[in-house]
Design a protein around this nucleic acid. Structure first.
Lengths: 120, 120
DNA sequence: ATAAGTGTATTAAAGGAATTAATACACTTC
DNA sequence: GAAGTGTATTAATTCCTTTAATACACTTAT
């Protein structure tokens, strides 16, 4: 389902959470879908169950999933995270755009770059 | 000259290097300018000289500054880092744009966002 | 009802990376 | 020569992540 990148220096729990979040955002996991159990995911990734648990807890806090004791973890309905995701993404996009501008990259070049990515 | 953000979880040396790099890229420090000495900067930020030294070493490796034993650290001529800065910025911009696209934000909205930032 | 599978919580140990600390040395400027 | 500079080294400390080993409450299936 997901693959860890051990060159990535960030904590494993953050990495797991981010990869699952991306999967959810991209529709690889749909609302209502059941995620692998904490223990299974741990075996799958060869990491500790506690680490998976932290990743899941972070996802639940952000509204991406819902945890139900005894049943499992399930992808939330879209309404609960779509808006949040949008504003987070846009905010980050604006911030990077400002730095790009400051670094001396022209407006035209920036616009072309965006267009190019969207055409890929 | 710069201010540390202790909510930022990244290492201090990286943070110092990045903030100085931004200052240089934005013209807050011009080619030839002398940076605070390792020891003075350490006192200024209330951190260890070794940490400052690491930040300066990273900046020198990327060509932003030149270190001269006995004299100090000086901002490099622009040619030595402008190209590098451009490619790094563009690479980061592309990466964020992909994520923005993945998150379901449309091309038009992204383009408008860029335009808006550049008009500010 | 019982067993297996689930989320959650707790405590302890281990490991690694960043930071501090204390020096030392070579060089430049005054 | 003294003071200020960059650089290097080694050790200790501190903090965070991860692992490990359990335990408990709940749900599902048999």
């Amino acid at each position: 389902m997901i693959v860890l990148d051990y060159r990535d220096k960030r904590p494993l729990n953050e990495q797991v959470a981010e990869k699952l979040m991306n999967l959810i955002a991209q529709g690889g996991l749909s609302p209502g879908d059941k995620l692998p159990s904490v223990r299974n995911m741990a075996v799958d990734l060869s990491i500790n169950p506690n680490t998976v648990q932290r990743a899941y807890a972070a996802l639940e806090e952000k509204g991406y999933i819902v945890s139900v004791t005894g049943r499992g973890n399930f992808v939330s309905e879209e309404e609960s995270w779509r808006k949040n995701l949008r504003s987070e993404m846009i905010s980050e996009f604006e911030s990077v755009t400002r730095r790009v501008m400051t670094a001396g990259i022209g407006k035209e070049e920036a616009l072309e770059c965006v267009s190019r990515i969207y055409e890929e």
